[in-house]
Nucleic acid binder design. Structure first.
Lengths: 339, 339
DNA sequence: CTGAAAGCGCTTACAG
DNA sequence: CTGAAAGCGCTTACAG
């Protein structure tokens, strides 16, 4: 296939001139320009971006590391990031870390080796290897943290309002008059899980309710752990529960079904993360609607800005998450019974 | 940051020797090798893969074009592909075409420009621009089609058994004794949609049932069209329905809820694509379990083999999809009433 | 076994 | 305004 010299030869100009017209980076007389354009068409010339990147030290590719794209939280985030990235001329390299620090490190290393201009990362628990930190710094690859913060990393971050969101959800249950409000938490190694738990506690306290340790189950954000949480917690007879993510909520509802406990009559549920099916299927879950698409889009936006301004002060963006009230919280039931 | 010459200088060898040890591509005496390894460590040298790719004409990156990663069908597919790709040392560039031929062409072009070694594509309706076809051929980039076939493309493909899967689902309804079995189809421009519709027809015919055109609604695989299908079809009083994908099933159930039609008592449902929440929430959908992860993994596998053997004959793999029987088909109900 | 040199395909000062 | 030349950071015949 044709390269820039083939085009130059055919157009009877230099490679520099071809480059100038391809990139519109310098004035080229209409005559030469016409010749170049015609040669490009005739030869089907397409610049080799690998070579360009090597020369310019800019690859126009971004890395995105998520725990697991198959976890329903992530697809919209990735879509948001991809849309923003491609709108700005960047291309996206996707990796799944499974929240495994070893895998994460390997991917990070691979991304740096491919000379991505920046990386969006939902950090696995634990800190980054110092060697990686050094590479990132030395290579000047921009970094923005998504969803989770690891304070050891000095960089931009775009986050959710986990604590406030959980607070709103639980406060809603408190207002509805529930008194035995349980919680299924996420792994304590994740900042999101900790923040959501804090919100739960604050809402209980706000309602004058004591936090009962027997009404707490530590999950891992996976479906199975939600199910196991159900098996455990349901015997403690909570009248309501806050489940820290939607995958665990699915598992929890499975346990309720198995125990033949009705929702919301026997136990009300509020969870996190909204999905289309929640509106159609029973019990219709009341949930915190995390702005997933926006999370990814903001992440990409901030990263791209960082690439343009490496020395600007670090930013931390926090996205608001509205509560979506449906039937699992027992809103209608309680509204009626109060009437 | 250090490049290969810095390492060579420090180790008092040539760049060729450094290259040989980094790639383990030629014998290097233990002495020199030791010096090189130490220099690499000391300098934190990491090969520039952009430069390597330029020199070797192999980028070890793959492109993956899906319609929309936010559509719940795709995340697992992508995960399967990413796992296989990374296991083989490849990295994955993700794009969303929205089934828009223009976007698709733009992405394809970008991927070729970045010199990916191969592309996995779930083709948007319509044929590829000849110019693109030529580029692909000329650049020697391997191509494998995923899920959908476009016969104009002479290349490997990994597909689902859409027709058989739909046949099994509908035959199940037929066996259960339903006689007014409706269908919500996908867009006729998609091979999957056409095949599923065929399966529906075959199953009706197999049961001696006539295909009633008033029991057919053409959807677009989107949630909203499933909802609209419901609004339309429910007045035709079907006793069962086959919905061609899960997004439309969600919409359809929403319509049923709105019309206060019970499932399966008033109308039974069989749909396509399985999701974890279907087991927990009501109505629990009977559905065809498309092997999404495997689809992606196979796609990547075939593509990587193709890269290794550009001249092997084209292959077409078809994956089997088991029917998952739950309550929306009315299996239990009918089983009881037959007893 | 090891190194000098050319080549991969671009971009970008720098002359003219 | 345009081109010759060096440089980006590797790999790979080819000598020796």
């Amino acid at each position: 296939m044709a390269n820039i010299y083939d085009v130059a030869r055919r157009a009877r100009v230099s490679a520099a001139t071809v480059s100038a017209v391809v990139n519109d980076s310098a004035y080229v007389s209409p005559r030469l320009k016409g010749r170049v354009d015609r040669a490009i068409d005739a030869l089907g010339y397409q610049p080799n971006l690998l070579a360009r990147s090597l020369a310019t030290q800019q690859s126009y590719t971004l890395g995105l590391i998520v725990p697991d794209i198959a976890n329903p939280f992530w697809p919209e985030v990735v879509r948001g990031a991809e849309d923003r990235a491609s709108a700005a001329g960047y291309t996206l390299l996707l990796s799944n870390s499974d929240d495994d620090p070893v895998k994460e490190a390997r991917y990070l290393d691979g991304l740096i080796a491919k000379r991505v201009d920046g990386i969006i990362i939902a950090k696995a628990p634990g800190k980054l290897a110092p060697a990686l930190m050094k590479q990132l710094k030395a290579r000047g690859v921009a970094l923005t943290q998504l969803l989770r913060v690891n304070d050891l990393l000095r960089c931009d971050a775009v986050l959710l309002d986990d604590e406030e969101a959980a607070y709103e959800g639980v406060a809603h249950l408190v207002r509805l008059g529930y008194t035995r409000i349980a919680i299924v938490t996420g792994p304590p190694t994740l900042s999101t899980a900790v923040a959501r738990e804090k919100g739960y506690e604050a809402a209980l306290a706000g309602g004058g309710l004591a936090a009962d340790p027997t009404l707490r189950y530590q999950g891992d954000f996976g479906l199975r752990s939600g199910y196991e949480a159900g098996l455990q917690l349901l015997r403690r007879r909570p009248d309501a529960i806050f489940v820290s993510n939607s995958l665990m909520a699915v598992g929890f509802v499975k346990a309720m079904r198995q125990y033949q406990r009705r929702c919301p009559q026997d136990v009300a549920i509020v969870t996190c993360d909204d999905h289309a099916w929640m509106e159609s299927f029973s019990p219709q879950l009341t949930t915190v609607n995390f702005p997933r698409y926006e999370l990814g889009a903001e992440g990409a936006r901030i990263l791209i800005e960082r690439i343009a301004h490496p020395d600007a002060p670090a930013r931390r963006v926090r996205l608001k998450s509205p509560l979506v009230i449906r039937e699992s919280c027992g809103y209608q039931l309680r509204a009626v019974s109060h009437a």
